[in-house]
């Protein structure tokens, strides 16, 4: 298991877990969100091959109403 911080919250995930797997676990559509891993933006095409490692910080963001 690996410990990863997701949107500021500590989560324990299986080994070799990809960002795509995490998004589906959270029932999120990848085309609706932007993902930043350790302050680097991860292109959508790379989400399925990016594996989460111990101590990673993941930010999952989306658009909402704003002025």
């Amino acid at each position: 298991m690996v410990c990863v911080k997701v949107n500021g919250r500590q989560e324990t995930l299986p080994e070799n877990y990809t960002i795509t797997q995490l998004l589906s676990q959270k029932e999120l559509d990848a085309s609706y969100v932007v993902v930043q891993l350790n302050f680097e933006i991860i292109e959508r095409s790379l989400l399925s091959e990016t594996i989460l490692n111990e101590g990673d910080q993941l930010e999952i963001l989306k658009f909402l109403g704003g002025g």
Binding site: N7, V33, I60, L61, G65, G66
Partner: peptide, 8 residues
């Protein structure tokens, strides 16, 4: 629009 963390 604005950008925010997803609320799980």
């Amino acid at each position: 629009v604005a950008l925010r963390r997803v609320d799980f």
